[in-house]
Amino acid sequence: MHATPTQLKMIVESAFAARFLIADDRILYVNRATEDMFGYSAGELVGHTVDMLLPDDVRIRHPGLREEYYKAPRRILLGVDRDVRARKKSGVEFPIHLGLAPIHEDGRLYVAVTVFDISHHKEIERQLVERAEELQLANERLARFAYIASHDLQEPLRKIATFADIVTASIAKGDLVEAAHAGEVARASALRARQLVDGLLAFSRQVSTPPRLETLDIRREIEAVVSDFSELIRQTQAQIAVAVPPGVLIEADKPQFERCLSSLLSNAIKYRKPGHTPNIRFFLRREPELALSVADDGIGFEPKYAEAIFEPLRRLHSFTQYPGAGVGLALCKSTCERHGWRIEADSQLGAGATFTMTIPCGETPKANPLKASA
């Protein structure tokens, strides 16, 4: 390529990407896009080496990088098959693709350097990987849940078939009392099967639906859920204390967050000690992370089950003792994971239980272009 210094300068300045020209290992010209990208003025860059635009670790790891290039100058694009980073004036590092093109003019070697900020592309790539991992995890959970559900459905379906035969036989011999009893057992088993199916549908919908975020006041959401349970609270004479100040805000999916609070409150009431008025407390801890806890003084459970109780359809007690589909805590865990939170259980048998949702301070789920609203 043959060009005058003026033409070379025009080539640099007319580029939309960040571009600058190097000769004798010094920056000669930079365009406006370079100033915008790196935060330096042209006056701060011209006359200096490109070292000021590179992170310290790059210079340490590749001390002879420029010398190697000048031995055999050629058109190359760096950053496609390995990470290349640059550094702004502010010290912030960012990923780039770096294009180098030698220009020989009047016996002098110039190098045109073009820099592409690929931060946005890297973020999209990260989100794609994250989404793929989420889908894999969701599929694994659904597969486990479907297996457990099909296994648990066998018992109520077997009862329905057995007692339907008993109904038929009882009617044939005129024993209406036995027929009525068998019909009630079959009906109860059918309701149990329906609960399991409803639980399966609720769980499958939630693990495959991205959260729709909005700003929520934690205390207001707790009060709304407590109000929904007012009749059950009256019947059980449960004492509810909400030690959460107003004005503590989070970004969350309102229906999912309310469903999680409902499950925790429902369990706290359900697993009360026989003949004992349940005492339930909502409280908040702000440091080092925001943590919302629901504590009760119920029957509790052995610490070894602290992880297992979050598995779908995992029950520590018989359905006769404590009815339910067995998906409430699994939905809580799913909600927390999809929001980037954690949920943990702490309990001792006979000494109540405390469930804590930990919300990293200042963090909300990152926007994901794949998560279109459904």
Rank of each mutant, 00 (worst) to 15 (best):
H48I: 00
L284D: 09
K273Y: 04
L329T: 11
A86R: 09
R82N: 11
D83E: 15
A330R: 12
Q348C: 13
L316V: 08
S373K: 11
V248G: 11
L157N: 05
L153W: 08
P323M: 07
A252S: 01
D346I: 12
L137M: 02
S347D: 11
D253F: 00
M357F: 01
T6I: 08
S347T: 11
E68T: 13
K173I: 13
R219G: 01
V327K: 06
S170A: 15
Q237N: 14
H276I: 13
T354A: 10
Q154G: 07
F257T: 00
I60K: 15
D228T: 14
V242Y: 01
L316T: 09
A372G: 14
A190R: 05
A190C: 03
F16C: 10
A72H: 14
Q256C: 03
I233R: 09
F282T: 04
E363W: 09
L53W: 07
Y70F: 10
F203S: 10
R234V: 03
A372W: 09
Y110W: 09
Q7W: 01
A18H: 08
S90W: 07
E133D: 05
E287I: 07
G350P: 02
R286P: 04
S262F: 09
Q127H: 03
E130S: 05
E214Y: 00
A132Y: 02
I96M: 07
F94H: 03
E67Q: 13
Q256W: 05
K159E: 08
K71E: 12
Y70H: 02
A146C: 00
G275P: 08
L264K: 06
A325V: 04
A186E: 01
T354D: 04
L313W: 02
R144M: 14
A180Q: 14
S373P: 00
I269V: 15
V244E: 03
I160L: 02
F319E: 08
G99D: 10
G328T: 10
E311S: 12
E344D: 15
I103M: 12
V92R: 14
P323S: 05
P274V: 13
T236F: 08
A190Q: 06
D24A: 08
Q237C: 11
C260Q: 10
S41Y: 02
I103E: 04
D152W: 05
E258D: 10
P95D: 02
L78K: 13
Q154L: 14
F310M: 08
H62S: 13
Q239Y: 06
P102Q: 06
V244L: 04
K122H: 02
L349K: 14
A372K: 14
